[in-house]
Each structure stands twice: as structure tokens, then as C-alpha cells.
Design a protein around this nucleic acid. Sequence first.
DNA 1: TTGCTACTGATAATCATTGTCAATAAGGTT
DNA 2: AACCTTATTGACAATGATTATCAGTAGCAA
Lengths: 133, 133
Amino acid sequence: MTPARMTRQRAAIIDAISDGDFRSAQAWHESLRGAGSAIGLATVYRTLQSLADDGDVDTVVSESGETLYRWCAAHTTHHHHLRCRSCGTAEEIDLPSFEQWSRAIASARGYTEIEHTVELTGLCHACSTELDH
Amino acid sequence: MTPARMTRQRAAIIDAISDGDFRSAQAWHESLRGAGSAIGLATVYRTLQSLADDGDVDTVVSESGETLYRWCAAHTTHHHHLRCRSCGTAEEIDLPSFEQWSRAIASARGYTEIEHTVELTGLCHACSTELDH
DNA sequence: TTGCTACTGATAATCATTGTCAATAAGGTT
DNA sequence: AACCTTATTGACAATGATTATCAGTAGCAA
């Protein structure tokens, strides 16, 4: 496959999402528009997906079923997230023992091609105190 | 709140879903129709949701974003699933240490109101061998 | 049996996401 | 710098799952 072309739109998206939050494609589209960048919604969807395929962004599915995207600093290692349900901030966590453990329990029951999803959500410190008055 | 009325449709749904698979609302609707039960799609959605609220069915979100439902034998304890991506069969698993561990790591980083999702998927023994020829 | 009201179902509406396709622009090549 | 090939874009239509609407129906308590 040929490498992706660095268009104005792709650059704008990469620039925007490198601030660490998990947001939906529509939310990123809005921020970009708000920042003055004329960009189409379909392009945002397509570009985020292509970046996700390349491993440059992480995706997560929210409670309401939307897919959330955020920049991912090019780790190839599998990892998980601890995400704030209120502001979208997220930190990466890894669970080395969980990886092995899940594989073990699944194959013990005859399962192959094992995959897993693990997501932790909560309210970060800032949001916790704020919602407390 | 008043307890749910036991209608013909609700009974048919409960009867149908007690066979252990995870399927989408639309899939359950089809099986019910196939079995001769005249029942509306909206009713299937509403009833499955109400059963889920009461803790009588488990829900899981598939890779493609559909919500899958299956009967849950009235445990109040939190648990997780090992589900076959091919046939939908699922078994329950529990991860006592994971529960505590996730709470610990999250609160160590200042998070409160912690929730988590853990789902294991794979190909069950039957499907593995079948897809192998 | 009666009455109140929750439940049902056909269908329209919603919402996130993907497909379409002509116009545009990356970026390598003369 | 002008040129060409083709990936990319964007407005909009289409999809697909789920939810809302609302008049008709049927639990079930009295």
C-alpha cells in the first residue's frame, strides 16, 4: 500500500487530536470547524479510521455506542485505557498478567483465536471534585 | 415501580432467550417470528431492555456495534463472558482479582465511580474445528 | 365484568456511520 | 514550472440499528 498523502485536512486532524482526549468523530469534526478549518465530516471519519488502521490512534466504544478516537503515541504493544466519563481524558494502562490469564482460561475451555476488550472508566480527580460542588 | 405485566409477547421472549446464546434484538425477533410468534420488533427491543434493567438478561456490544442479549440466571454478582464470535454461545467467567485490581489502580490515579467492561471472545471448540475443514 | 393503564405494533424519526461520485490537489515526473 | 496520475475531498444520499409516536389492545386488580 502507498503511504497516505499529507493533505491539509489530514494535517489538521493530526494536529487537533494530539491533545490526549478521547472524542467521537463528530466531536473532533466540531472542534476542527470551531477552529476555523473547513473540513467535511466524512473526511474526519475516513481519516480517523485510516489513522487507527495504522496504529496512530486508539479507538474505544462509549456506553452510548459511539466510537471514540484519540492520538496514540505509536506503541505497537497492546494496551488498555482508564478514561474519564466526564471530560474524556484518558491514560494508558497495561495488564501483562491479564493477557496471559485470559489466553489461558479461554484455551482451557477449548476456545481459539482469542481476543479481549478491557476498558476502565471513572471520573478523574478534577471531575470528581467539580461534580461534588 | 410496578412489576412488569406478563404478556404473551414477554413470555415468548423469555422462553426463547433461555437457551444460552448471545444474539441481537433483531436476531431474537427473527427466531420468534420463525417459531410462529407474531411479535413486533419494537416490542422485542423494549422487552429485552426491560429484562436487562431487571438483571434478567446480560448485554454485550459486538464488534460491529450491535447490542447482544442473552438470558442470565439471576446472579446479582458481577461477572463477565467468554463468547464465541461465530455461533454466539457464551459461558460466564468471573475474575475476582480483576475487580479489586481495577478499583485499586484507578483510585491510585485519583479516579472515582469506577466501572469496567471486560469481554473475551474467540472461536469455541466446535466452530474452531469446523472452520478448519 | 369493568375500568384503569401498561403494553403492543406499524411506522416514522433519529443518530452514527458509510457509500457515491464529480471536483480537487498531492507529489512524483518531465 | 507545467503535467499527469490517482488518492483524497466534501456535499449529500443511503444504510442500519435503535428509539419515539400513538391509537388500539389486553393484563389484572377490584
